[in-house]
Computed example of a mutant assay.
Amino acid sequence: MMENASVITMFSLSGLNFPFVQRITIFVLILLCYLIILLSNFTIIFVIVMDRKLHKPMYVFLCNLCINAVYGSVGFYPKFLVDLLSSHVISYAGCMLQGYVIHSSNCCDFSILALMAYDRYVALCRPLVYQSFMSKQRVTLFVFFSWFIPLFCMLMNTASVLGKKLCGSHIDRIYCVNLMVVNLACSPLKANNIIASFNIGLYFLHFLFICWSYVHLIKTCISSTQMWKKFRHTCMPHIICLITYSTTLLLDLLYMRFGSADLSQHFYNFMNIEFLLIPPILNPLIYGLKLTQIRNGILTFLHTKKKIHSF
């Protein structure tokens, strides 16, 4: 098998083998979804940045969650839109970059969601020390590591694949995934397996930490009507976003490993992109509608813009 190996410069992607008319329809729908993702997330980011009353830890973390949604969507949607109108191939460097952006965005989501869970835990379970503990310097440090650790972990993961001999150039997916590239390697990539296992363990610990935070939150808040009201108001949007993200990501991972080839190509494609489609659209809508200060900030911005146009 090693004798058949050659230097791979391009990968072919699958999932777009249907008539051009259908591609145009999907192009319009995907473009609309992409514009909604950009508009909704940038709106939340703009409102939080411009309103000094929202310069609090919970909203700072929410702002970073929206920034990460934009970052992850940029790694997928522009290339996919181009593929719908042309041949669906990608260069080796482009594949590595796309896989890195999508994977690191997923990990950043978990890191930021863990920070948001911890912020709510301190705010509701230890309110007397909240202001002193969640200082501006500490929040800045938390945000820095919530980006640095995922970006570094995924950099190591991607670096462990670079330069390895590949015995194929077809990726059975509409975008690049590191696992698919690893499966094309002519020999097992031990370094990648070790790094991937470490990353999975690290983010499983993130998940356990989030669960631990909410167990304590529920125990603390359930005995008091006032506390439970605060919990529902500030924590429910986070819980909904966490469940949505975790479910879509888990379904994608399960389908990638155990999915049936008998299902339609459209369903297969949807399962590939659901975690890149549903959470980035749903998260800003949930927070924008549920959190009063965010909603008021959006309405104030729209009212101000309307007054400016009226002159």
Rank of each mutant, 00 (worst) to 15 (best):
G297R: 00
L202P: 02
D262M: 13
C221A: 11
K305W: 15
D252M: 11
F231P: 06
R232W: 11
V215M: 04
I210P: 00
I218D: 02
I200G: 10
T234W: 04
L299P: 00
L217T: 04
V215W: 10
I286P: 04
I278R: 05
Q265V: 14
T225F: 03
L253R: 10
A191K: 06
L299K: 11
L291T: 05
I210V: 14
C235H: 08
R232Q: 12
K290A: 15
P237M: 03
F198Q: 03
N296E: 15
P280W: 04
L254R: 07
K290N: 12
C241E: 09
S260N: 14
Q226K: 15
Y255A: 02
I218T: 01
N192Y: 09
M236E: 11
W212M: 14
L282V: 15
I243C: 06
L254E: 03
W212N: 12
K230P: 03
Y268A: 06
L250C: 07
I222D: 06
F270Y: 10
D252E: 09
F301N: 03
N269D: 01
N272G: 05
I286S: 02
C235S: 15
G288K: 00
C211V: 15
H216M: 11
L250M: 08
I240W: 05
H206R: 14
H216C: 14
F198R: 06
F258A: 07
T292F: 03
S264P: 06
M227I: 07
S224T: 06
